[in-house]
């Protein structure tokens, strides 16, 4: 009887656990990955699969065939620590842009990636 209760307790404990992730992967972005937007964005927002450390995470922006474009400091959204935000200080002229990111997750792992978006037609 005691063994049965122990087994039931063990089973319910295991059933309670659910999968999670351990590295910050990009889930959503504004502007969207590969999208075309009509006008220049005022900020870049990257949402990851888990909380990120703004102190060591980076977002860089560059014209697809040109130089880097200065962005504001990287911060996390006050309402969601999975979202990195960087302001775009000056309006972007029409063209294709590449966003590169390096995200350090709360459990100290690093991921990198990049995507492009287009401003105007």
């Amino acid at each position: 009887m005691r063994a049965l209760i122990l087994c039931l307790l063990a089973g319910s404990w295991l059933a309670y656990t659910s999968p999670a992730q351990a590295h910050a992967f990009l889930e959503q972005a504004v502007p969207k990955v590969g999208s075309t937007v009509d006008s220049s964005p005022t900020e870049l927002r990257l949402r990851f699969s888990e909380a990120v450390e703004p102190a060591f995470s980076r977002i860089t922006l560059a014209k697809k065939d040109g130089g880097a474009i200065a962005l504001g400091p990287v911060a996390v959204d006050p309402g969601d620590d999975r979202i990195l935000v960087a302001a775009v200080p000056a309006p972007l002229p029409p063209g294709v842009y590449r966003v590169s990111w390096r995200a350090v997750s709360r459990d100290t792992h690093t991921t990198t990636g990049d995507f492009t978006f287009q401003v105007g037609r």
């Binding site: 959503q28 972005a29 969207k32 979202i83 991921t111």
Partner: peptide, 26 residues
Amino acid sequence: PRAFQQVVGGAVGSPQEAEIPMPVAV
């Protein structure tokens, strides 16, 4: 899609041209 993301110090995928539209907007 994670094909265009890479784990630094690990071995998951590799960065490549990323023109994959995201399924949902923020």
